[in-house]
Design a protein around this nucleic acid. Structure first.
Length: 114
DNA sequence: GTGCTGACACAGG
DNA sequence: ACCTGTGCCAGCA
C-alpha cells in the first residue's frame, strides 16, 4: 500500500519534531537534512501536515516567519525563549537571531538512519 | 501534456 | 535594509 504522505514528508516532520525548544532551522536546512527536494517542498509539507508539529521552529533564511503566521510564530518564540533581534528602525519587525538560535541537525541521528 | 503557484534561497542593484 | 529577477521542485487546474 502507498503512504498517504508524499515521499520524504514523514522524514521532514521527524526532523521538525526533533528541533529543541528555543532553537530553529531554516526551510533550506531541513530540506538538505532529509535529501534535498527544495525548501519549498518543506514549507508545503508543513502547511499541509505540520499542524501538530512545532512548525514555528522552521523559518526563512533571513530569520523571519512566513507572513500569515507571523503573529503566532512570534508568540511561540517568546514563550520558549528563542533568541530574537528586532531591526532598529522598525520595532514591529522581529526576527529570530539565526546566529544564536540555528540548530545543527548533524548532531542528531534520525530514526530512519539508525 | 502545459502552465501557474507557493509557509523558499540567492545574487544584483 | 529594500525590492526584483531567476532557479528549484512538487502539486494542482
Amino acid at each position: 500500500m502507498q503512504n498517504e504522505l508524499p515521499d520524504r514528508a514523514e522524514e521532514i516532520l521527524e526532523v521538525v519534531h526533533a528541533i529543541p525548544a528555543g532553537r530553529v532551522m531554516t526551510y533550506g536546512d531541513v530540506g538538505e537534512r532529509v535529501g534535498d527536494r527544495g525548501p519549498r517542498f518543506v514549507g508545503n509539507v508543513l502547511r499541509r501536515f505540520g499542524s501538530d508539529e512545532p512548525w514555528w521552529r522552521v523559518l526563512r533564511a533571513d530569520g523571519s516567519a512566513p507572513p500569515p503566521l507571523a503573529d503566532e510564530a512570534l508568540a511561540r518564540w517568546r514563550a520558549e525563549g528563542t533568541p530574537l533581534r528586532r531591526l532598529a528602525h522598525d520595532a514591529a519587525d522581529v526576527r529570530v537571531d539565526l546566529g544564536r538560535a540555528r540548530w545543527d541537525a548533524g548532531e542528531w541521528t534520525a530514526p530512519w538512519e539508525g
